[in-house]
Design a protein around this nucleic acid. Structure first.
Lengths: 150, 150
DNA sequence: TCTGAAATCAGAATGGT
DNA sequence: ACCATTCTGATTTCAGA
């Protein structure tokens, strides 16, 4: 990975719909070379995929939460709990962290009721869960995990 | 937005590179109609963009943190602090939350040193900041904010 | 708003360096 | 690994419904 690859990635992370012609012109390499490099970045797992970003608000996903989950101690409790959390509909992020808590879970629902039914009750019924604590997101100031190169 | 739009979005959130032909065949509508609908979803702001997802690990972004930030009280302190946090390189998520804390900040760096220099020292020098608390992510079990429709 | 057909344009394949 | 050219097929446009 060199400087040119980084410039390619920097463009594609903001907008995957630029044409090869445009990108090639921008960074001044032939478009066949550009195509060759992008294919390589995909094959090497640097580019993991291309996604449409759908505005959660347009689907009325207005009840957004960040929940801390503490696991009970036991063999494999953490691995199993992490996977169980990841499978809950509405959950888009699960992070295993050091510190007081064990997992940070990011989730989105339409209403408080949906959050209660689909998420909270389900999480609290998982036997490996010791305790949870939820913070409600009032405003998303920034959310762009695709931006990796600054 | 009807059932067909939802099916289109559901496909594009997983892979924006499916061709119109494939999608049209899948959901059994003419591809010109599909094209028309996608354009409309883009225009209406339902589809906000198309992004390449770059594997953070391939850029050695292995020091991943989730930081809680509490703001001092004062006129517009929250708005200004939120914007300042969002502008820090390495920060990809800033959420304004209810509860003990005010902001949850998601960030990625290459090393602990980079995290200290680019993030922590900068955050702690912001006058509106009262206190911070950082959790280090040991493992990302799930991270797919583009998945909105289940 | 939907659709089929035509026209345009983008990306993949080729082959030489 | 790089690049110019060719070629295939995908997307956009347009006119009629």
């Amino acid at each position: 990975m060199d400087e040119i690859d980084l410039r390619i990635l920097k463009i594609l992370q903001y907008n995957a719909k630029y044409s090869l012609d445009e990108i090639a012109r921008e960074i001044r390499i032939p478009k066949s070379t550009l195509s060759y490099r992008i294919k390589k970045l995909e094959k090497d797992g640097v580019i993991k995929g291309y996604y449409a970003y759908i505005n959660p608000a347009s689907l009325n996903l207005d009840y957004i939460v960040i929940t801390s989950v503490k696991a009970k101690y036991g063999k494999n409790y953490h691995v199993e709990l992490g996977n169980k959390l990841a499978q809950i509909p509405g959950v888009w992020g699960v992070y295993f962290v050091l510190g007081d808590n064990d997992f940070i879970v990011m989730a989105r629902y339409k209403t408080r009721e949906e959050f209660m039914e689909k998420f909270l009750e389900r999480v609290m019924s998982i036997p490996e869960v010791e305790r949870t604590s939820t913070q409600v997101v009032v405003k998303i100031i920034k959310e762009s995990p695709n931006i990796v190169i600054f």
